[in-house]
């Protein structure tokens, strides 16, 4: 039995720039199934990142409704959207976005602390071990390479066992070899966890790893059957 963990209903998103209006989405409706991996592709500026922002409640649609795990995101205030996001969603950014004042371990434990979960330091170390960075747990992010930082960001996104992981071009800032390692790692970490992964990417090779591939085109999300 499949369950729809994310539902986007008649979503429109319009940006205003000066006097001009720029529509990103127009009456977009799409559902994402729990445990599925979806890749979102499209040209630059088409709205791929905006889609992730709408799903996570970081941004709100101009009209329409976003439902995440049964919660109507669009009807929540910012504080409650944040609480929902920190519980249900893990975020991986293109530029890693680790907190510079926290060590590797502290960055990983941050979502647990925010959710008032017990700190699973051992589990965090274990995860670090899996990503090959156990010996760097006490380092600050600026001491790590890009690939290392992204591995930490992935662990941070997964530590609190969210139902959804949103990855915004996670390999965009990395060289090909490191990108492959990161992808492999992502696959390993999410397998058997029944996680919903939505992956924004430019790379068709990376997109091929997903169950479904969507393309943002003409203000809509088209299922790429090819």
């Amino acid at each position: 039995m499949t369950s729809e963990i994310i539902q986007l209903k008649n979503i429109s998103k319009v940006y205003h720039e000066g006097g001009d209006q720029h529509a990103i989405f127009n009456q977009l409706s799409v559902n994402f199934i729990q445990g599925q991996t979806s890749a979102i592709i499209g040209r630059s500026g088409s709205g791929k990142s905006t889609l992730l922002n709408l799903i996570s409640g970081i941004d709100l649609p101009t009209s329409g409704e976003v439902i995440v795990n049964g919660n109507r995101m669009t009807r929540l205030d910012e504080s409650n959207r944040t609480k929902l996001r920190r519980k249900e969603i893990g975020f991986i950014f293109q530029a890693f976005n680790l907190i510079p004042t926290l060590t590797v371990l502290e960055n990983i434990l941050l979502p647990l602390e925010l959710n008032h979960y017990d700190k699973k330091t051992d589990e965090a170390i274990e995860l670090l071990n899996q990503v090959g960075l156990a010996n760097r747990y006490n380092s600050f992010p600026d001491r790590l390479s890009g690939g290392e930082q992204q591995r930490i960001a992935i662990v941070r996104a997964l530590i609190h066992e969210p139902k959804i992981v949103l990855a915004d071009e996670p390999t965009g800032n990395l060289d090909t070899k490191t990108a492959e390692t990161i992808l492999q790692l992502l696959e390993e970490l999410i397998c058997d966890k029944n996680l919903t992964l939505i992956l924004v990417t430019h790379s068709m090779e990376m997109a091929q790893l997903a169950d479904l591939i969507y393309e943002v085109r003409d203000n809509q999300l088209m299922l790429n059957s090819g």
Binding site: T82, K87, N97
Partner: peptide, 16 residues
């Protein structure tokens, strides 16, 4: 600004 936005994305509420 970006660092703060990341914190918000991870789950810091505006009050936090």
């Amino acid at each position: 600004i970006k660092e703060i936005a990341t914190l918000k994305a991870i789950g810091f509420t505006p009050r936090q």
